[in-house]
Amino acid sequence: MDAAALQETMPRLRRYARALVGERAAADDLVQDTLERAWQRRAQWRPGSDLRAWLFSIMHNIRVDQIRRHGVPTQTLDDAAILPTRATQSDGLEMNDLSNALAQLPEDQRAVLLLVALEEMRYEEVASALGIPVGTVMSRLSRGRERLRQILEGRSPARLRVVR
């Protein structure tokens, strides 16, 4: 691995982890696990390929393992669970509100939304990092964005249609 490229990717990995899991300590643990696994598997990395994509896919796999093993607190898709993030128009939206709003998204939608909107990855890169088809990226992106919009606007989403 190229040290310079890795050093440059670090802040991005941390930012994504923080936005994905919400909490600082948990996010840094996720980054640490990612780096450790990358180190263990350094032989699998092909020089010249995209280091960032490789690290994000490792991080994703670790996250999937974590959720499988311990479960992660998730919000049910029940309207009552969704609180308006702002009581009044005059309250500023704090970073906490944004984190809270993100936390109300299902993890798979949040991951896609963050990779696209925050990381500015192309849809194909997201598909490859998450190991899903581009069509699935698009449907998760679409649902994630719409849901976040409704949460930020302080109203609960209309009954979600189940689209598989």
Binding site: D2, P11, R15
Partner: peptide, 24 residues
């Protein structure tokens, strides 16, 4: 989330990433 890009990377993570990259 931009401020996170500006935060110094915690020492233990930095060392880890240096170690990972140091091979080459």
């Amino acid at each position: 989330f931009a401020p996170l890009l500006d935060e110094p990377v915690p020492e233990h993570l930095r060392r880890l990433s240096e170690q990972s990259g140091a091979v080459v």
